[in-house]
Amino acid sequence: MGCSNMLTGFLNLATFILSIPIIAVGVWLSKTHDTVCVRFLQYPVIALGVFILLVSLAGMIGAWCDKKFLLLLYLFVMFLLIVLLFCFTIFAFVVTNSGAGNAVSGKGYKDYRLGDYSTWLQKRVNDPTYWAKIKSCIADSKVCNDLGTKYTTVAAFNKANLTPLESGCCKPPTDCNFTFVNATYWSGAPAPGATDTDCGKWTNDQSILCTDCDSCRGGVLQNVKSNWRKVAIANIIVLVFLIIVYSCGCCAYRNSKRDSGYKGYA
């Protein structure tokens, strides 16, 4: 057995072992959580784990048992995975290239506007079905629950370093100029001449607040931008690893063909 076959087999053994906890997490989510938010996650997690398990198994058997068909199938799937991962990484950088929080004078937090982000991302969060799932996730994570007791004075609230979700979904936009009661309860009417449509969407209902506002969608997209940038950087590392594994697999397949040729000649 060639060195490339051994290395390919061991690398796939490592990914095979990694797939087991991934599947376990997906099963755990399906058994212990029944919210829309978690159901939205559990099936992709299980599918990803099963996919990694099967591909790794094909790579191990193909490399260690000298099965050319499995090696060829493994290399084909790996090639597609590398191409798709590369395309997704480029796409992630492109769609998250625009958008940022808007600094507010005298405030520690920023305001977020939906229109600042890419058109593709805007269309996603404007889809009613998709947004309903996101709102469920916001409710499940209890983003706004502690703000009312954490910031009870306007001075403390103005200095608060709120997250994008807290700023966009838990309070009205600053331009509305409502009167502060606490971080999640505001009184009064919108300032004269206020053009932000979110001023009319804000409600003191603690189960809703500004989750129907465009500012909340903007806060979600700012989170998406930050997370996708991190994922894209991680993808670059994964791509380098996959290319190394793919190169080893190619060498293993070439060795397998060469050994078959020698046997046929003998």
Score class of each variant (00 low, 15 high):
residue 6 M to D: 08
residue 25 V to I: 15
residue 25 V to C: 01
residue 29 L to K: 06
residue 39 R to M: 14
residue 41 L to W: 09
residue 42 Q to V: 10
residue 45 V to N: 05
residue 48 L to P: 05
residue 51 F to W: 11
residue 55 V to G: 07
residue 59 G to F: 02
residue 60 M to K: 01
residue 61 I to W: 01
residue 62 G to D: 06
residue 65 C to P: 06
residue 75 L to V: 10
residue 76 F to I: 15
residue 80 L to F: 04
residue 81 L to H: 01
residue 85 L to E: 07
residue 85 L to P: 03
residue 87 C to T: 09
residue 88 F to T: 13
residue 91 F to D: 11
residue 91 F to Q: 09
residue 109 Y to V: 04
residue 111 D to H: 12
residue 112 Y to L: 10
residue 122 Q to P: 05
residue 126 N to W: 05
residue 133 K to F: 11
residue 134 I to M: 10
residue 135 K to C: 02
residue 147 L to Y: 04
residue 150 K to S: 09
residue 151 Y to A: 00
residue 153 T to D: 08
residue 156 A to G: 03
residue 165 L to N: 00
residue 167 S to G: 11
residue 168 G to T: 06
residue 175 D to L: 12
residue 177 N to W: 12
residue 178 F to D: 04
residue 184 T to K: 01
residue 185 Y to S: 11
residue 186 W to M: 08
residue 186 W to E: 06
residue 187 S to Y: 10
residue 189 A to V: 07
residue 189 A to R: 07
residue 190 P to A: 07
residue 195 T to L: 14
residue 195 T to I: 10
residue 197 T to E: 15
residue 200 G to T: 15
residue 200 G to D: 14
residue 201 K to S: 08
residue 201 K to V: 06
residue 205 D to P: 08
residue 217 R to N: 10
residue 219 G to W: 00
residue 225 K to H: 10
residue 231 V to S: 02
residue 234 A to V: 07
residue 235 N to T: 00
residue 235 N to P: 00
residue 237 I to D: 06
residue 244 I to C: 06
residue 249 G to V: 04
residue 249 G to W: 01
residue 252 A to M: 05
residue 253 Y to D: 06
residue 254 R to S: 15
residue 255 N to V: 12
residue 257 K to T: 13
residue 262 Y to F: 14
residue 263 K to H: 14
residue 265 Y to K: 11
residue 266 A to D: 15
